[in-house]
Structures are given as C-alpha cells and as structure tokens.
Amino acid sequence: MPRLCASPELPEGSSRGFQIGRQALLLVRREGRVYAYRNRCPHRGVALEWQPDRFLDDSGSLIRCARHGALFLIESGECVAGPCAGEFLVALPCREQDGAIWVEL
C-alpha cells in the first residue's frame, strides 16, 4: 500500500492528483474523510482535472471532468450529470494512518 502524502497536504475541501507508476489517481478530502479514485473519466477514459490538482467543481461539492463537464459525487464516484450519467469512477481503498494517506492499488 503506497504512501501518497502527509495528511496535512490534503486539507479539508481540497483535491490532489498523483502518479504511481502508470496509475493516475486523485484524492479528495470532504468532511474529514479521504476518498481515492483512479483519475480516469468513464466516458472517454481521459484524466479529469483541468489544471494540476483541480478536480472539483466551483462549489467544491462534486468532482468534475474538465473534458465534457461530467459531475461525480465525491462520496461514491457516481456520475450524476453529463455523458456518463449512472456510471462510476473507480474507487480505491485508502486509509489515513500515522499522519499520512495510503492507497491500495
């Protein structure tokens, strides 16, 4: 289980992208909990961010695909608007331990 970052490097309401080998990942912290997903839109298989570490919509409440505007629930990865409505981001198990965030690939 690789260590992605120190816990303080993902503040509340923020998102960050990571590259582990060939795997592109994203983390989001919401209401104190960390969510991890593969950085790949189910619609076209493209990366989601429009700028480095910018995965959230303007309200900070949904993950947004920069390519086609699809919106995903942070808590489940479900697409709730856009061309892939009803599909899901691939969630990855993660945990916070010893002041760091770890993800299972």
Rank of each mutant, 00 (worst) to 15 (best):
M1H: 11
C5Q: 15
A6P: 01
S7Y: 01
P8C: 13
P8F: 08
E9A: 11
L10W: 02
P11D: 12
P11H: 14
P11N: 08
G13V: 03
R16K: 14
R16M: 13
G17V: 08
F18A: 15
Q19H: 06
Q19D: 03
R22F: 02
L27V: 12
V28C: 01
R29C: 04
E31M: 04
E31D: 12
G32R: 02
R33F: 00
R33S: 12
Y35F: 13
A36F: 06
R38T: 04
N39C: 11
N39A: 00
N39E: 08
R40Q: 08
R40K: 13
P42L: 05
P42D: 04
H43R: 09
R44E: 12
V46M: 09
A47Y: 01
L48P: 06
E49C: 11
E49L: 00
Q51M: 08
P52Q: 10
D53C: 07
R54Q: 12
S59H: 11
S59Y: 00
G60N: 14
G60I: 05
S61M: 15
R64W: 00
C65H: 07
C65A: 07
A66P: 00
A66Q: 01
R67C: 13
H68Q: 14
G69L: 10
G69I: 11
A70V: 15
L71M: 07
L71T: 07
F72C: 06
L73S: 14
E75C: 10
E75N: 04
G77V: 04
E78C: 09
V80E: 08
G82Q: 15
G82P: 08
P83H: 09
P83N: 13
P83A: 08
C84L: 09
A85G: 00
A85H: 15
A85Q: 08
G86Y: 12
L89F: 03
V90C: 12
V90K: 10
A91T: 14
A91I: 04
L92V: 11
P93E: 15
P93L: 02
C94L: 12
A100W: 03
W102N: 09
W102E: 14
L105T: 11
